[in-house]
Design a protein around this nucleic acid. Structure first.
Ligand code: MN
Ligand code: MN
Ligand code: ZN
Ligand code: ZN
Lengths: 150, 150
DNA sequence: CTCTTATTGATATTGATTATCAATATCAAG
DNA sequence: CTTGATATTGATAATCAATATCAATAAGAG
């Protein structure tokens, strides 16, 4: 089990910088967040935390995930379904997602071409771009094999 | 004012093919949909239609927009905010969107490089891709000029 | 330790969309 | 043109995720 020293420090300074308090709940939520590698929802995290001794409120999970995003430790990600998911941001490289429309499997991928592409677009459309989201949909290898479809 | 003969025919055959009925409401909603060029929400369309004589129910607008999507006349688009928007699909080319994070302006853009890029990704990640969505965020020219920021 | 202020968590509320259902309209068949 | 089976409508209730409210509690500066 990792100790997440750096991330804890980032969060602490973030809280201090904003005049916010360091609480047991925030600590627990941060640890649970960092220990979970998937793209999970607030509810997923809430259910994980519920098993611990002092159950943490749902609202607090939502609130804290929002703080983690502001602290640049987490980012929201919109994949399947209608609920927001979260992923690690600190020390994680930019990436895109492919979602299998059949089994829901989501994989992360680097698309090095995106950088030059967004540069080109900036110039052509006179926008100063700050962010982009590329999401790809299709069928993964296994799902195609299983169904003998192509 | 255009007559949208082709689109009406597409919708008619779609309805017939599914054993659905041709109603005055569906006709009105189709016309309103086709006359509106922006990326609008179900509510936008509902408000437009409300001004007409027999006010059409909100639920019917939602239901019919869903049908228009299934008929390939419309497609859903997720831009600003939490509500789904709709755009024309029939006889409209594939395109991406840039959203100005300052003024909300949304522009459509062709990105010809996307095709070869997705082909490459297909091969590398062994997915059979069927769709992609690229959304870009930044500041438009006017907004940067106004604020003397860069 | 004390006091101000932030935080928590139960719960109510919101906002968007979908489901329900009785009344009504459509349309194929006669 | 009727008829009758079936689809549609629209008012409204329900759902779902997320946020706001608020009284009780905890943090932490001084
Ligand atoms: Mn990811
Ligand atoms: Mn568009
Ligand atoms: Zn799959
Ligand atoms: Zn702008």
């Amino acid at each position: 089990m990792m100790d997440f020293k750096e991330e804890k420090k980032v969060f602490s300074s973030f809280l201090k910088g904003r005049g916010l308090k360091h609480t047991a709940q925030r600590e627990e939520i941060l640890k649970a967040f960092l220990s979970e590698e998937r793209h999970f929802t607030a509810e997923d995290l809430y259910l994980l935390l519920k098993e611990k001794k002092p159950a943490i409120g749902f609202a607090t999970v939502y609130r804290t995930l929002k703080l983690l995003c502001e602290a640049n430790l987490a980012s929201e990600v919109y994949l399947e379904g209608s609920r927001v998911r979260y992923e690690h941001k600190y020390r994680h490289e930019m990436h895109e997602h492919i979602v299998c429309v059949n089994c829901g499997k989501t994989i992360e991928l680097k698309v090095p071409e995106m950088e030059s592409l967004t540069k080109k677009i900036e110039k052509k459309y006179k926008f100063k771009l700050t962010e982009h989201r590329l999401k790809l949909f299709g069928k993964c290898e296994e799902c195609r094999r299983d169904k003998n479809e192509e």
